[in-house]
Design a protein around this nucleic acid. Structure first.
Lengths: 194, 194
DNA sequence: CGAAAATTTGACATGACTCAACTGGAGTGG
DNA sequence: CCACTCCAGTTGAGTCATGTCAAATTTTCG
């Protein structure tokens, strides 16, 4: 099971880990199983753990005074989940993170993570590559939200990340796109009609 | 002048550079002066240089078929400018980058940048810290675009980055916020009336 | 099957956009 | 130093995309 993390790191760092290094990595992480709807993080708490998703589906979202939820991240297996701002700055988070499907995670604390960065160069490289990709994908998403209509953003998502649409309910996808569930429903109908 | 870059790196890396290291850094960068409206990057080109702004104001934007401009980044002194996706992936950029004010830059190529990352640990650390901050600020901006109205986004910008509002014309700020210049004008009037 | 949740649909409200006209400087040149 | 132009910003009117609320329908799942 932890082989998944090993090959993930090796892929992103474009190198291999020695068994000793991998041992260190595995000691730094704790396995955790979350059932559907269980929380990894609740608003107001500091994000103590960053998680690597082995299997499952999770979401990160805020809730406003009216109770409306705003989804800012959806995560599937072989990706990371956590509120980075809170995790690294040790500040209270404005986000909630919960499991949408039953999810298996590998969790790591800030301290342990820093230690890995200090001792294993491959982890540093991996982080650089991941940040790079995140930087690029967020910039694209930001550009979409400024330059594209609701329909265009939905169609872009269908083309680039169909797996999200398959795994999460429509209302979450709507929130992720920054539109109402009703609007998304209408957009989909019109897309089909054409 | 290049002392600015040195102290920037030292601040972000929380360490000092040896003179030898700084020598390497300076050899990697080229000084460039851009006049107002000159381009650093044009759509369709690969972003050959990443720039550190010593003095001035720059913007990064795309243009759609109708000629409408969408500003995705505004940069002032002591920050970086460039299309990271194009720069690191060597792909043609969809963005234009030009100088809004006369601007002094230090430019670096991808090759030279990789070399610095390989030879100077402080540069690696600096990048990690910068990426971290960018990650956080972009996530916030994304959250704003999903969860807040045009007015709220404008007010947030006034509170968090008033220097952008002072240095760039209103229509660029509007584009940066993803709203029309007319809408921004009306929002401002109403804010004043209250 | 039956309850609860998700999605769809309809009717209506509204925020934001578009287009066009107007206003008010900031420069320029006679 | 005035007249003129240019351009950003403002304002108005009409439109359109999207949101809201409520009801109907479909799907999910115990």
């Amino acid at each position: 099971m932890s082989e998944v993390l090993r090959s993930y790191i090796e892929t992103y760092a474009s190198t291999t880990l020695t068994d000793a290094e991998f041992e260190l990595v595995m000691n730094a992480f704790t396995f955790k199983r979350l059932r559907r709807k269980q929380y990894l993080l609740q608003e107001g708490d500091v994000c103590k753990y960053y998680g690597f998703i082995l299997k499952g589906a999770m979401r990160q979202y805020s809730v406003d005074l009216k109770g409306t939820e705003y989804v800012i991240h959806l995560g599937l297996e072989e990706s990371w989940i956590g509120d980075r701002e809170s995790f690294f700055m040790l500040t209270p988070s404005q986000y909630n993170i919960d499991a949408w499907e039953d999810t298996d995670l590998l969790l790591i604390t800030n301290e342990d993570f820093q230690r890995l960065l200090d001792t294993i160069p491959a982890v540093v490289t991996m982080m650089r590559v991941i940040d790079q990709r995140y930087y690029i994908s967020t910039q694209r998403r930001l550009h979409s939200s400024i330059a594209y209509t609701a329909r265009e953003r939905y169609e872009e998502l269908v083309n680039t990340q169909p797996e999200l649409i398959q795994r999460f309910p429509q209302q979450m996808i709507a929130s992720y796109l920054g539109i109402s569930p009703e609007t998304l429903s209408r957009i989909r109908r019109q897309s089909i009609e054409k």
